[in-house]
Simulated assay, not measured.
Amino acid sequence: MQGQVAPGRAVQVPAQLGARQDTVDVTGRRLGAPQLTDAPPAGAQSRALAAAQPAYGPQDDSPPDEPPEEDDDTRTGPSGKTSPLHIGWHAISRKTLRRVTVTPSAGAGLILGRDRQNAPVPLHLFAPEPVRIALVGGVWAAQLLIFRAFALGARVIVVTTEPRAWAGFGERATGQYNRLTVHSSDQGAALTGTAQMPTLAVYDLGLTGPATAPPLGPWRTQLTILRQLDRPGLAALQDAQLTLLQRLGGDEAALATSTLKLRPHSGQFLQFMADDMLALIGEGTDRYLFLGQTPTEQQFIGLPRR
């Protein structure tokens, strides 16, 4: 109804221009409006603002000699006894500092892609013990894996019968000439690896892996590329701890299913995967993932293909 005021509401009373405006509640009590002024606020409000200021000036980056005295009026805890929060310098003794340690972690590994639930799929490419991986696919998938391994600090040695496929790849990807070297034989490929600079030895020999098992050590991983899966390459699959598969033909899928002891429907799915998919076989599970190639990876490696 017009003319009524809701309980607890305050209304403005018009005043002359330039005069102070007050607020009147429904009980008729007059509430003074705050004056606007350039003078600093006084009382507890000024002390609270002063406490919020830095303890030392902007040009002085040394810690204060003593913390500022605490004003009881500025305590904000429910009991009025909350300690003020001091952000800035903290000092510990040398004895305590020597007790601070960093615990090494195995890490999440190299992110290979994402599964059908969009969860990241890590690949433990490097480890304190030797790792052997087989890839049934083309150079594109191998170079994508290597490109991501560069981000882990890896050095790469490629032993190949087709050096033109690798010419200039390391320089383009890293801007350095010694991060990836290409050899026509195992000679000169026996480099050691460390946790800071692991080594990836890539064998791109067509249908088979290396004739003899290369010597491996800590932080050194062997990647064998099988351009096509046929019986000469089955030994490489059996020796590998992990197997990566691009889309396979019918005969290849049959060989992979029997050699890796896959379920029948897995062998069928291998024949219908998209170009940007991989199957990760090993560690007691089969995972099918999308590689999620970035624009930068497309620039250096090209679009997905086998």
Rank of each mutant, 00 (worst) to 15 (best):
V5H: 14
G8Y: 02
R9P: 05
V13Q: 11
Q16E: 12
D22S: 13
D25W: 02
V26R: 11
L31M: 04
P34E: 11
Q35C: 01
L36R: 13
T37H: 09
A39I: 01
A55N: 12
Y56F: 05
Q59W: 06
D60L: 08
P63H: 05
D65H: 03
D73K: 10
T74N: 13
T76I: 09
T76P: 00
I87F: 07
H90T: 11
I92P: 07
R94L: 14
R94A: 14
R99H: 12
T103E: 07
G109W: 13
L112P: 11
D115T: 13
N118I: 00
V121G: 03
L125C: 08
F126H: 11
F126A: 02
A134F: 05
L135A: 09
G138F: 12
Q143C: 05
F147S: 01
F147H: 08
R155Y: 06
V159W: 03
T160I: 08
A167H: 06
G168M: 02
V182S: 01
S185W: 02
D186P: 00
A195I: 04
M197Q: 13
L200G: 01
L200D: 02
A211E: 14
A211M: 04
T212R: 01
T212C: 03
P214D: 10
G217N: 05
Q222V: 12
T224F: 06
D230I: 04
G233A: 05
G233C: 06
R247Q: 15
G249C: 02
E252M: 05
A253E: 12
A253R: 07
T259A: 14
L262Y: 04
P264A: 00
S266T: 12
D275F: 06
M277Q: 15
L280E: 08
I281K: 03
E283V: 03
Y288E: 00
F300I: 15
I301G: 03
P304S: 12
R306S: 15
